[in-house]
Structure formats: C-alpha cells, structure tokens
Design a protein around this nucleic acid. Structure first.
Lengths: 211, 211
DNA sequence: TTTATATTGACCGGATCGGTCAATATATGG
DNA sequence: CCATATATTGACCGATCCGGTCAATATAAA
C-alpha cells in the first residue's frame, strides 16, 4: 500500500475503506468490483490504484486492518478485571457494536473473508486463533463459582453468544429493511436486559445481584 | 418453466436445483452465473435454457420451491398437538435440518433471496409472513403456564432461536472447514440436550419433567 | 426406418473486468 | 508570479465472462 493512503484525511480514507469492506462483504473476492468500490467511495479509478497497487493488495490491507482493529479494540476497551461472565460478554458485544458504527461492514467482511480462505490449513489456523481470543474473553479472571451447580458452562456460552448474535442480526435487519435509525443506547439497554435475565436463571440465588 | 423439467429423474433434477441454489446463495442474483450452475450440475447450457426460459424464471422457480417446501414440511411434520414449547421448537429445528439434507443451500438461498428483494414493500410483506409462520410455531397449542413467573417469553424465544441457529452455524462450519461428516443423530442429541437445559432453567420446578 | 424429443456446446453481441497512463488539477517552494 | 512536484482524473486497453441462441447430434418412441 502506498503511504499516501495513510495521509488522506480520515473521512475520505474511511469512505474508501467502508466502500471496499461493503463490496467484499456482499461479493466473493473474485466478483467484487473495483469499479463499484470507486463509484461508492466517490473517487476515481486511478486514485484507488494509486493508493493500492492491485485489488489483491487492497484486500490484504482490509484483512489486516479488520484483524488489527478488532484485536486492539477488544484488548483496550474490555475491563479485564471484570469477574462477571455476563458483564464481560456484554462489554465484548458493545465493543463490536461500536466498531461497526465506524466500519459498518467489518463483521460482514470478516465472515466473507473467512468463508473464502483458500487452503484448509489457513482456515484451521484462523479458527484456532479466534478460539484463543474468545477463550480469553470467556475465561480470563472470570468467576465461575457463581453458577448453579451442574450447569454446563460450555452450553451457557453457546447460548449467550447465539443470543447476542441473534440480537445483532435483528438490529441489522431493522436498519436495512425498515430503515430504522440505529439507537446505540437502546441496543445497550437491550443487551443489558438479556444479561440480567441470564444472571437470574444461571446464577445461584445469592449471586444474582453481585454480578 | 418447461414441464420437461418435472419429468426429469429426481436425482438429476435435485442436482440442478442444488447447483442453482448454491450459486444463488453465494452470489447476488446478477452475479450468479448460469455457466457455473450448468458446470456444477453437469448438464449443458442448452439443457438449462430448455428447462427454464431464462435466468429470471429459474430464480422464480427456486423461490417458490423453497417457500413451498419449507411451509409444507413444517405443516406436515410438526406435531401440532404438542404443547411443550421446547419440544415444538426442537421439531421445527429438526424439520429444517432434514430439509437441508436434501437441499443443503435452501436456507442460505432464502437469506440471500430475502436480502436482495428489490422494493421495501415486498421485504416488509415477506417479513410479515415469516413472523406469522413463526408465531404459529411458537403459539399454537403451546402451554405457557409451565414457565416460572415473571419470565419474559419473547426473550426466551429470542434466546432459543439464537441458540439453535448458532448450533446450526457451528455444524455447518465443522462440515465445510473441518470436513467432518454430518451425524444426524448427534445433531438431534445436541439439540435435545439444549432443550432439556432450557426446561430446567425456565420451567417451574414441578413442570420440568412433564414437558 | 422414420419421426419426435432431449441434449449438446460452439458461438453471439454486449457488458464488465483489473489495470494503465497521458492529461489535468492542485499544492508547494522560491 | 512562475516552476516544479504531487494528487487525481476518466477514457481506454485486451481479456474474460455474461445470458441466451441454434444448428447439429444423440436418444427414444412409433
């Protein structure tokens, strides 16, 4: 990547990044069109290939940007002293949500990028890394003694993850289909409500309010 | 559609249907390639345009097939006398799972097809219909008195849906990434285990075993 | 064998692809 | 103000792929 891209004012840079993320989210790498990217970013074809030497390089840049951004944001903004699982998960969810306010198609891009990795080895490696990161989120400093006896923690995590992703999908749908505006506080309130419900049903009586 | 397509032996017909469903799942309508469809279905270009007069007609056929199949299967195979919510949801999940054994890309196609409907009106209508169908699944003959007092049923449904979809995605991932074979009974067992967990946490003590 | 039907794949004009580059606009330094 | 350097433009390139056609061929029915 030409360093001139980094010197662009951030509004223009984000316009290009978001346009590219969107195009690569909606289409496979091969079918994603640089023409569409420049049109939506409102720049000329030549400009794009001035910043990036090729489509492939643009794609690689986006991959590392997404990866780096996600990891850094999670590292920074998560309170790693938090011992309550549901509060931890809520924080991670909010971080992802905030990132997608700046880069709306980042998560879509990740999924598309992962689905179309070429070799199985690379897929397995990425999967392994993702699992590592998530294990840290779910385990580092977390107090599991609050849970009722006999509760299968792995299942709890599946349930909570599934629920949050479901909420995110529903919001996405409301925004794109019903043209609802995105109300950040409402989203956080909703996630909060679910987390309280989870505490109520999964924690021992005496631990319900401590979380 | 030419009726000659219906007279094809079902193996060949399903090969064409699945190849087309897959191509339209992975790509938008415009970028989906009839060349790719015929290649993967192992038929000639001429044959496809003998069965269907155009790409658009093929797409319309798939839409109505998917819609009809889903509705009919749900109507037929769900036990509408079942009063337990989690058993009902389990049945619906298993029906979808069985359908996707015959047509693996049916659900992916539905999502893609929905996401790319042209007018907002049509989107809203489809959304409304989906909601209706799901409301019947969640409400018809269901005994909600088993739930603990103060439990928010809408949230419970979101949680259970999210969990089942999460399980489905994980299985899909294991199949495509890790080349694991798909063990139907194991999947049903897993869904069962989650449903038992849900009964344990959401039902009153006295109703946990009756479901 | 004759007739009817199913299937093939080379071929069509047109659209789009990733990428180039001479021309132009803008910014910088004296 | 000019001179130079840099940023940006969009018409243009050959290549590829598009949806769809159709004369030729294979297969089945009569």
């Amino acid at each position: 990547m030409d360093r001139s891209f980094d010197n662009l004012d951030s509004a223009k840079r984000d316009r290009i990044i978001n346009s590219a993320l969107h195009e690569f989210s909606v289409n496979s790498y091969e079918k994603a069109s640089t023409n569409t990217i420049v049109k939506n970013a409102d720049i000329s074809k030549g400009a794009l290939f001035h910043y990036f030497s090729s489509k492939k390089e643009l794609y690689a840049y986006l991959k590392s940007l997404v990866f780096k951004t996600m990891v850094e944001e999670l590292e920074e903004k998560i309170d790693w002293n938090q011992t309550d699982l549901f509060e931890r998960i809520k924080e991670a969810g909010i971080v992802k949500f905030q990132v997608s306010e700046r880069y709306p198609d980042m998560i879509g891009f990740s999924m598309q990028a992962f689905a179309h990795l070429t070799t199985d080895e690379i897929k397995k490696q990425s999967m392994a890394y993702m699992n590592d990161l998530y294990m840290r989120i779910y385990q580092y400093n977390i107090d599991y003694s609050k849970f009722k006896d006999g509760i299968d923690i792995a299942k709890v995590i599946t349930i909570v993850e599934g629920t949050i992703e479901k909420i995110a999908r529903t919001i996405q749908q409301n925004v794109t289909v019903y043209k609802q505006e995105l109300d950040t506080n409402a989203v956080i309130d909703e996630i909060n409500a679910y987390m309280e419900l989870f505490k109520n049903i999964f924690y021992k009586q005496s631990d319900r309010k401590r979380g």
